[in-house]
Every structure is written in structure tokens, then in C-alpha cells.
């Protein structure tokens, strides 16, 4: 599909949370949709916004800003939900706006700086400098609460 793929290149979807830029690997992204009010789930962490109807599938929405410890997102018209596949599950990530689609090579990725908060580091796989911006690569694996606890 992509000529660069063999050269260790990957495509990323970049988005904004507040003033910061983050990105996820496009391979895990299923679709991007506008924000819709979610049905809250009782007894769920504050970063779980609730669930929405994604063409018949019940999709949990994680407020990524809240998940990263930046406080709850106040949805605007530009807010979007990035639907990603994590293992066998689909999760919607609520972010402020999608900013870019990037093609980068793996060598651009640097380790997450020590000064980042503990919480942020748990979800950031690394950072990269692109055209003078710093973009953090989100590891989507851990965004949902660990459900074993519920059993």
C-alpha cells in the first residue's frame, strides 16, 4: 500500500489536546467521526466518557486529555472521536481536533523525556520532532481501564 513501508516508515494521525500534539499509528485507526454525546457508564473512571452507538456496536469513549491527566475535555464542534482497535476491542478516543497526517520513519522516534509526568509516560511511546513541532506517539494499548478489576 505504501512504498515507504518497507523503509521503516509509518503513517501517523496527529491530533491536538489543548496546546499539545499527539499522534497514533494509522494502522490502529478504524475511522474518525465527529463527537456525539455519550451515555455515561456508572462506576467508571472519569476519563471514560461513556458509550456511543457506532453503527450498532457499543463503543466506549475515552477522553484522552483526562486519561493523560490534563483534565476533562470540553467538547467543541471541532472535537472528534478517533476509533482505534486495541487488541480485539474498539475504543473511541475523544480529542480536540485532528491536525495532520504524517509519514515518518522510525528513527525519528525518541524516548519519552524524563520530565514528562508519570501518567503521560504510561501512554506515550515516544516523541518526535516534525517540522519544528514536538509530537508524542500514543500507545493505545493502555487507554482503557484494566477490566480484570471489575470481575
Amino acid at each position: 500500500m505504501n512504498d515507504n513501508e518497507s523503509a521503516g516508515a509509518r503513517e501517523l494521525i496527529a491530533f491536538r489536546i489543548g496546546e499539545q500534539e499527539f499522534c497514533v499509528d494509522i494502522i490502529s485507526v478504524r475511522e474518525i467521526r465527529g463527537f456525539a454525546a455519550a451515555t455515561p457508564l456508572p462506576h467508571s473512571p472519569d476519563y471514560v466518557r461513556g458509550v456511543i452507538n457506532l453503527r450498532g456496536t457499543v463503543l466506549p469513549i475515552v477522553d484522552l486529555a483526562a486519561r493523560l491527566g490534563f483534565g476533562a475535555t470540553i467538547p467543541t464542534a471541532r472535537s472528534v472521536i478517533i476509533v482505534v482497535r486495541v487488541n480485539q476491542q474498539l475504543v473511541g478516543l475523544l480529542v480536540d481536533a485532528v491536525s495532520d497526517i504524517l509519514t515518518v520513519t522510525d528513527d525519528l522516534l525518541q524516548p519519552t523525556p524524563e520530565l514528562a509526568s508519570e501518567l503521560a509516560r504510561a501512554f506515550v511511546r515516544g516523541v518526535m520532532a516534525v517540522e519544528g513541532r514536538m509530537i508524542s506517539l500514543i500507545a493505545v494499548d493502555n487507554v482503557l481501564p484494566q477490566m480484570e478489576l471489575a470481575a
Partner: peptide
């Protein structure tokens, strides 16, 4: 896509499209 929620058996989608 999520997990078990205490007090909630399952979900459904209503006529307005909401869960």
C-alpha cells in the same frame, strides 16, 4: 469493547440512536 459494569447487564440502542 469495554467490560463488565456493575449494575448494568448490557446495553441497547434506542430509537434516537443513543445507547
Amino acid at each position: 469493547n469495554y467490560g463488565r459494569v456493575p449494575g448494568v447487564a448490557a446495553a441497547t440502542i434506542l430509537g434516537d440512536g443513543r445507547v
